[in-house]
Simulated assay, not measured.
Amino acid sequence: MSGAPPAIFSPNRRAMAQLRADRMQSMSDAARFLVEDVADDLADRLSFLRHAPQRSLVIGDRAGVLAQTLPGASAAGCFDLEQPWPVESHDLIVLPFVLDTVNDLPGALIHARCALSPGGLAFVTMLGAGSLPVLREVMLAADGDRPAPRLHPQVDVRAGGQLLQRAGYANPVVDSRSLNVRYGRFESLVADLRAQGLGNVLVDRGPSLNRAALSRAREAFAALADSEGRVTETFEILTFSGWR
């Protein structure tokens, strides 16, 4: 008999990160480029698939970007996605960057499938393997000889396909694309991650950066700058889609 999945992420820290992101998204200049990119991609895919959902559910879209593009869509916050969902049947469920930090990812995908009506489509995005190479390098420089856990484990395309098959989806499709964003300051990158609910919520998060470590992080970031004084960070957007 299999046991419970390992506790990699802290539910309490995740809830606090989501509340912080909600507050930040109330500001007009908050970063929301990831969900905006997903909205454009989803519109293209639905057009190609000729799937015109009438009952859509969007979970975790704090700024309402996706809900605006889906007629009749309902929105929900990030309830406990690892338990059976308190939702009616929907013919489209969209999960933008909310499954990145669940401990039982296969279980969450199964709950999403069960919440679909027959012939319904689930559309999931996560930060995939290869994301945030600049932040990874900067954090290693900041921690020095004692690297601490700073970044979340990430799923690649192959593992994503296996997850969808394990969760029982029909016609599963997984792909990845890169989104590059340029930054002039290390703090701007961190702020963008927090505004989009992507801060560190690991159970073992490592110690907070002290003044010396933060100085090393800034120096490492500045060392990566181009001739215009900016650093390009990469977000690999992993997209899952599957049918019930």
Rank of each mutant, 00 (worst) to 15 (best):
R32Q: 08
R32V: 00
F33H: 14
L34T: 07
V35W: 01
V35D: 04
E36W: 04
A39H: 02
D40S: 13
D40W: 08
L42R: 03
R45I: 14
R45A: 11
L46W: 05
S47F: 07
S47M: 10
L49V: 08
R50P: 05
H51D: 00
A52R: 14
A52P: 04
A52C: 07
A52V: 13
P53G: 12
Q54V: 08
Q54C: 08
S56Y: 09
L57D: 05
L57K: 10
I59K: 00
G60I: 11
R62E: 12
A63H: 03
A63D: 02
V65A: 06
V65M: 01
V65Q: 01
Q68G: 14
Q68H: 13
T69G: 08
P71T: 00
G72E: 04
A75N: 11
A75Q: 15
A76S: 15
A76D: 12
G77C: 02
C78R: 08
D80Q: 11
L81W: 05
L81Q: 02
L81V: 06
E82H: 09
Q83E: 13
Q83M: 10
P84H: 11
W85H: 12
P86C: 01
V87N: 06
E88L: 08
E88G: 09
S89K: 15
H90L: 05
H90D: 05
D91C: 11
I93H: 04
V94H: 00
L95F: 00
L95Y: 00
F97A: 12
F97K: 06
V98Y: 06
L99W: 10
L99G: 11
D100R: 04
T101R: 14
T101C: 12
T101Y: 12
V102Y: 11
N103I: 09
N103D: 11
D104T: 13
D104W: 12
D104G: 10
L105Y: 03
P106D: 12
A108N: 09
L109C: 07
L109W: 01
I110V: 15
A112V: 06
A112M: 05
